[in-house]
Write a protein that binds this DNA or RNA. Structure first.
Lengths: 209, 209
DNA sequence: GGATTTTTTTGCAGTCACTGCAAGTTTGCA
DNA sequence: TGCAAACTTGCAGTGACTGCAAAAAAATCC
């Protein structure tokens, strides 16, 4: 009894993971991240505390809810991009694709996340810290794609810039959501592409660019 | 009894802080960051555990040993820069100045730090997370300097890029220290200045590409 | 269907980071 | 010298996180 797509086991795991993520966000948005214990989260999701830690290495990780497959998926996309695009472009597309998918499939979670981050902007930085291994994976992919040695700064820097772009975009987005998160990430990457040396013009007011 | 420079109290505080920082690094380099307890660090520095936490908000923070005055100092420098330089240039100079000073006054600590980070590269990201408030301060300074509204992405992005540059430079530096850390940070900032859109050439002699 | 093997969940005991509070101690200042 | 402010300390407590071994559930085999 093993469907090609998903076994009962896999389905249950997905559901548990999702429940824990949602519980973390719901409770944190409601009464503040550090007024919520893992015990309460686990209770809300109807599993034991120990199970929480089988799914997430830390409370922070549950907050950002990083998909463990996202890293490999993005690396895949970077390497699969045709030779006609630059490494930067390949990376940019993989980031934007990932974010678009994520937002489409879990918009409600991001709204909760926004509430939490508005209360404590520093949590975003902390939560991102857990994605360190993932960064290494992506940097290697970029290096391969760009034909650079592993020791070169560029791949690491590009990936770190992507992280930073996302982080800043979310921070900005949490302030007021006139603009779509996806657009903000795109805008940030655009600034990195063009170079930070020149100050961008500031075409503001509700421009949903 | 109050010298213009430093009171007895100030001197003692500096010494205690330095002792704690050094103890954290020495023990961590020797037997690994998470095989060292705060209790041991405090003992090595001859203070109580409680005092450790009066100086550092977390064990991570002691590892990076961020100078609490560094943020304000850099912000100061950014705002003080003459009008003939761009905001980017003002920021770059403040970063490089800070790093040069830091390396000159605490090179030995950075060598210990290198040992620790070689064992666990992810610690760097985590340690940087504690500098979130400082980032806000710098971003505000950049925004003022560039005449941009606080909501604009650019200032935040520039500061985040600076963090990333430093982070990547240290990571690279920890691999092999043929190159000075200062130069690597400079190089990284250069890449950001020029824009990540084009792949940098890799001027390498032993090119095992 | 039932036996067995593999995976997942759980409870439990323990470690350790970190916090608030209420002394105790040291330094600054008049 | 004596008082006030700043710093240190111990203590008790909370809560994140871990390893381990047993229970429960699901996939596999006959």
């Amino acid at each position: 009894m093993n469907q090609p797509g998903e076994s009962l086991r896999d389905r249950k795991k997905r559901r548990t993971r999702a429940a824990l993520e949602r519980a973390t966000l719901r409770l944190s948005a409601e009464r503040g991240y550090d007024h919520v214990t893992v015990e309460e989260i686990a209770a809300e999701a109807d599993v034991s505390v120990r199970t929480f830690f089988n799914y997430f290495a830390s409370k922070d990780e549950a907050l950002i809810g990083a998909d463990p497959e996202a890293g490999p998926r993005m690396a895949e996309r970077i390497l699969a991009a045709g030779d006609e695009v630059t490494p930067f472009e390949a990376y940019r597309r993989s980031v934007l694709a990932e974010i678009t998918d994520e937002l489409n499939s879990a918009r409600d979670l991001w709204l909760l996340r926004k509430d939490v981050l508005m209360q404590r902007p520093d949590l975003l930085v902390r939560a991102f810290a857990s994605s360190a291994e993932s960064e290494q994976l992506l940097a290697d992919a970029v290096a391969r794609r760009a034909g650079l040695p592993e020791s070169h700064l560029y791949p690491r820097l590009l990936v770190a810039a992507g992280s930073a772009a996302f982080r800043c975009a979310v921070t900005r987005w949490a302030l007021d959501d006139d603009v779509a998160l996806g657009s903000l990430v795109g805008e940030a990457l655009e600034l990195f592409a063009a170079g930070l040396a020149h100050v961008p013009p500031h075409h503001h007011e509700g421009g949903t660019s």
